[in-house]
């Protein structure tokens, strides 16, 4: 049934194109109105769900952020005081700083490694080896982050594989309880994120570089350009969109991280791995400071926007 209709329509489209131009000259007013109305009908269900479970809660978050409320008893309006606390309390500032610190690992490592691999391959990954690579490198994207957290908690444990490898390499003195070490816990959490995002960034960049015209490189090589120059002047500019995507995805993953930290360190030792996402959860549900939690939530949302918008602008496709 549907197929014939589709075919008919397609056929009529081919025949009917001259007809259509005359049709477009019909009175516009009523038609636009009607078009808008119909579109609205199509959009309405999605908008209702979106409004009910995103816009309304977002508005409530803003409202809560102006309150002092334990979530159960009576609330009191305190104006912007919660925001003042978020922006001045040294602990909360460190928590926000930790999230930015994670960007170093979540973003830089996957992109640097991905670029390295992409520039060396400089082409499609074909054949069974390509398939296997793609499959393996995407595994971390498919499993829950919680599982990544559990696996790496075990890797970083005192008796875990990381220490085992260090000892085997004669670097035994470097072995430690990574996730309990003030200096190394945050980098360790960062490495978990890098591990998760590595495959995705690599594949994005490899796919991107395959689209670059090889003759550009050949011409550059004839002009005596070295690898580094090729990377800076050809590859990176050509991949700006792909890199932009990687940066966007990884920066959001770093700033809004929750699952990995929840499982691997619970924010410790001290607050050296505490991130805004986990702090919001704790403040709201364990410490019963719904107002402060909401203020931090709004600040987090704005920070993500502040970071992502410039990236989007830089990576926008050149017209």
């Amino acid at each position: 049934m549907s197929e014939t209709t589709l075919d008919d329509a397609a056929m009529r489209r081919a025949e009917g194109s001259p007809l259509q131009s005359t049709g477009a000259r019909r009175p516009r007013f009523g038609r636009d109105q009607r078009k808008l109305l119909i579109a609205a009908g199509f959009i309405a269900p999605a908008l209702v769900m979106y409004a009910a479970f995103v816009l309304v809660p977002l508005g409530m978050s803003v409202f809560y952020s102006l309150l002092r409320w334990d979530g159960i008893g009576r609330w009191r309006f305190v104006g912007l005081r919660n925001y003042l606390i978020v922006l001045t309390d040294p602990d909360l500032l460190q928590v926000i700083g930790n999230a930015f610190n994670l960007i170093l690992y979540f973003t830089l490592i996957p992109i640097a490694l991905g670029l390295a691999v992409a520039t060396v391959i400089r082409g499609h990954m074909a054949g069974p080896f390509g398939t296997i690579t793609r499959t393996v490198l995407f595994l971390p994207q498919v499993i829950p982050l919680v599982a990544a957290g559990i696996a790496w908690s075990w890797m970083f444990a005192s008796t875990g594989l990381v220490n085992q490898l260090l000892t085997a390499l004669g670097l035994g003195p470097l072995a430690r309880g990574w996730l309990g070490d003030f200096t190394f816990a945050l980098p360790a959490v960062g490495m978990i994120g890098a591990w998760v995002l590595l495959g995705l960034c690599t594949m994005l960049l490899v796919t991107g570089i395959a689209k670059i015209d090889q003759s550009i490189y050949e011409a550059a090589e004839l002009d005596g350009a070295g690898r580094w120059q090729e990377l800076v002047y050809i590859t990176i500019p050509a991949l700006r969109q792909e890199i932009g995507v990687c940066v966007t995805v990884t920066v959001i993953a770093a700033l809004a991280s929750f699952d990995i930290v929840y499982i691997a360190t619970a924010g410790g030792p001290g607050i050296s791995t505490m991130v805004p996402g986990l702090e919001i959860y704790r403040l709201a549900f364990a410490h019963r400071q719904v107002g402060l939690a909401s203020a931090l939530a709004i600040v987090l949302m704005l920070l993500v926007l502040l970071c992502v918008l410039p990236i989007q602008w830089f990576a926008r496709p050149k017209r």
Binding site: V56, Y64, I280, A284, L300
Partner: peptide
């Protein structure tokens, strides 16, 4: 971020 609306 989902954390921004989880409380409400």
């Amino acid at each position: 971020p989902f954390e921004a609306v989880i409380t409400p």
